[in-house]
Design a binder for these strands. Sequence first.
DNA 1: AACAATCATATTGTCGACAATTAGACAATT
DNA 2: AATTGTCTAATTGTCGACAATATGATTGTT
Lengths: 218, 218
Amino acid sequence: MNNNLSKFSLKHRIAHEIRKLIFDGKLEQGEKITESQVSQDLGVSRTSVREAMLLLELEGLLISSPYKDTRVATISQEEVLELLIPMRVHIETFALKKGFSIWGEGTKEQFKNILENMKKVVNFEDLSTFIELDIQFHELIVTSSEMDNVIRIWESIVHRIRLHFLYQNRKSGTLQKWLVDHEKLINIFVYGKSVDEAVEALRKHIVETNIPDVYLLE
Amino acid sequence: MNNNLSKFSLKHRIAHEIRKLIFDGKLEQGEKITESQVSQDLGVSRTSVREAMLLLELEGLLISSPYKDTRVATISQEEVLELLIPMRVHIETFALKKGFSIWGEGTKEQFKNILENMKKVVNFEDLSTFIELDIQFHELIVTSSEMDNVIRIWESIVHRIRLHFLYQNRKSGTLQKWLVDHEKLINIFVYGKSVDEAVEALRKHIVETNIPDVYLLE
DNA sequence: AACAATCATATTGTCGACAATTAGACAATT
DNA sequence: AATTGTCTAATTGTCGACAATATGATTGTT
């Protein structure tokens, strides 16, 4: 736990560490995770780990029942495609509607920065980092709406979607396409004038990047 | 904390108690709530109260920032009407689609039981109890889908909607109308054959009971 | 061998104590 | 008078220890 640039409380930093283990594949679906082990590994007390794991449970990343062991969640494709992604679309378009007109130059710069960073990593086919940037991008949409609470709800579903996405291990070569997609979107956000156009573009972006073609045909 | 018919862990029972305080108006919007006070009042340790309050924070019922005091959330009508209720509609209709065809007699009995209980309290104009039954009704829709996780997401938004609803202090005399509404709905659930019909009826029910007429006109 | 009762171990649940941080009262400085 | 610094009280954050529970191994009985 060298991560003491604390701005977040310990439980949040621990939760972040565990999330990273899961997203990096160090912890697999259904694998057991115990409080004391994490506690030892990170050199913090079990109480803090408990609170972190409670957070993760409510994000749907961990599953636990009283006195039984805690495990990394398994993801149901049905749930992700039919429930979580539509909810995510609703949350992010809501945030965009509220935020679009109040964005200052600072926010627009942040969008452009994320895009620049994406361009930097696209050639390395570093999916993990790219996904991290994608999350940053969507998180910015949510937080810049300045609607408190929305970020909380967003977090309660987005990590599960991300996990589903990772387990799909997509074929390589799609990063370039994905980058172009983000570039178009950010241009509409930064230079566009119409909220409705931005909202529609975002909706399309989320659906197309998350739902496999085969599923859309049904 | 006489509530030791434990089937739920202590933190869940404590969270339930605090929720009750809020829904019964004993704790008002923006009012401060401290861990040690609750801990003393209920005769449990602060650790358990902390975990309970973390749950409530993630349900949007409490607000806290590091080392600062914790307070009962204030509710934004905009958020409830434009974000939470549409999300709720999506969650419950999803659950209904998944559950409708697998419901056994037991589930149908439970729906009928809830309706009977509603009939018993309708004449007392006991809004609080009626809302409790309404929650039970909708919770049954969600849990009987047998999709794990859905209940978790549902809980992360429904309590906030309920709070908004309570603060509206509606005029009396509406309970009878509300009962009839539930009766129709449950009949469609129990005796109806078409999922689509049930889904559409549920959607209509949620929107109509939660969104004031004035808002719909816009 | 099959089955049930008992026990051991691993893990989570709960607790009280101490540490860190904040906000407000009060004092010192300009 | 306004500002700045210092103390104090209230509150949240973190910790290690002990209690309760579930699971699987072991033993005993048929």
